[in-house]
């Protein structure tokens, strides 16, 4: 058969569209429409993220965290929408900057742990044998390290804390779960015939890993990362609350809530800690709702749509 590329009628004729089967996005969308709570959560998340990142462009962190002795413990007013803390610093500004910082850390840690987990887990699960054994022992080693204690030590020895360095420390101790999850799924995928078939076509192992196995893992990766995002934001807030996260000069949701450790603040000055606490609660719930909807969308038996 001789076919000339330029004159081939097959390419020139308009190829009719194959019948639409629901694509991944469509299934997710259907699931969200059925689950109104998840849809609301998603809208809320998008709005709050856009709002926080948008507003914080116009806010100056330096100015907000500067102590103003004439405005200590002001209740909410027209000047200070959510009042001020014991340093006379605007709570509203801190809330915006703090939410931005917390979200940034959450996303950064989720993406970094995700990347390490995916690569580590896929290589370990796909090659198996001795490679798998060694890599999983490394995971075990990281698992037994006392995470909190090491973070406390790091806080003590690292002089200048930034979002990046804090994320790196958290990442170093949070990627193992992801690696294990991905490994176990890769072990399953590896045994399927399409992997063998791809080998018989002459594809190299890395090509098979990243062009064939990875797309087939994408659903669980998306679900795991979404649910992890909530956990990571919570973890950062928790550490900051305990005083092992950011200093007060870098507000986060956790530092705002930590003001409530002072009994007087807890009792009389609700405006300092209630908004941040509520925001943490709502953010966690929303992310988890969306995550659950995604999870159902990836499993045909649990779908509502």
């Amino acid at each position: 058969m001789e076919i000339e590329t330029s004159k081939n009628p097959l390419l020139l004729s308009k190829v009719e569209e194959p019948a639409k089967t629901p694509s991944g996005w469509r299934i997710i969308w259907r699931e969200l429409v059925r689950d109104k709570v998840a849809l609301l959560s998603l809208i809320f998340l998008v709005l709050i993220t856009a709002f926080v990142y948008g507003i914080s462009l116009f806010l100056d962190q330096e100015e907000i965290v500067t102590v103003d002795l004439f405005a200590i413990h002001q209740p909410p007013s027209a000047d200070f929408w959510l009042g001020t803390d014991y340093g006379g610093r605007d709570i509203f500004g801190q809330l915006i900057i703090g939410t931005r910082n917390s979200l940034s850390i959450g996303i950064l840690v989720t993406v970094m742990t995700g990347l390490i987990g995916i690569i580590f887990g896929m290589v370990s699960g796909y090659f198996g044998g001795a490679v798998d054994n060694i890599m999983m022992r490394i995971v075990d080693f990281f698992m037994i390290l006392p995470f909190l204690m090491i973070v406390i030590v790091f806080v003590a020895i690292v002089p200048k804390y930034s979002i990046l360095s804090f994320s790196l420390i958290m990442t170093a101790f949070l990627w193992m779960g992801k690696a294990r999850l991905i490994r176990s799924k890769t072990l399953q995928e590896r045994e399927l015939d399409y992997v063998q078939a791809s080998k018989t076509l002459g594809s190299s192992n890395f090509r098979i890993l990243f062009t064939q196995v990875l797309p087939n893992l994408s659903s669980i990766i998306i679900v795991a990362m979404t649910l992890n995002l909530a956990a990571n934001i919570g973890l950062e807030s928790g550490l900051s609350f305990l005083g092992f996260g950011f200093p007060e000069s870098t507000p986060s949701l956790g530092t705002l809530v930590s003001y409530a450790r002072n009994p007087q603040t807890l009792q009389d000055r609700w405006w300092i800690w209630v908004p941040a606490s509520l925001l943490i609660l709502v953010l966690m719930l929303s992310i988890n709702n969306v995550g659950q909807a995604l999870k159902r969308a990836t499993d045909a038996r649990q779908r509502r749509g």
Partner: peptide, 16 residues
Amino acid sequence: MGMIFQDPLTALNPLM
């Protein structure tokens, strides 16, 4: 050399 597999249901990548 090429190989034809036993089960065409699993020998193709479902996402390609």
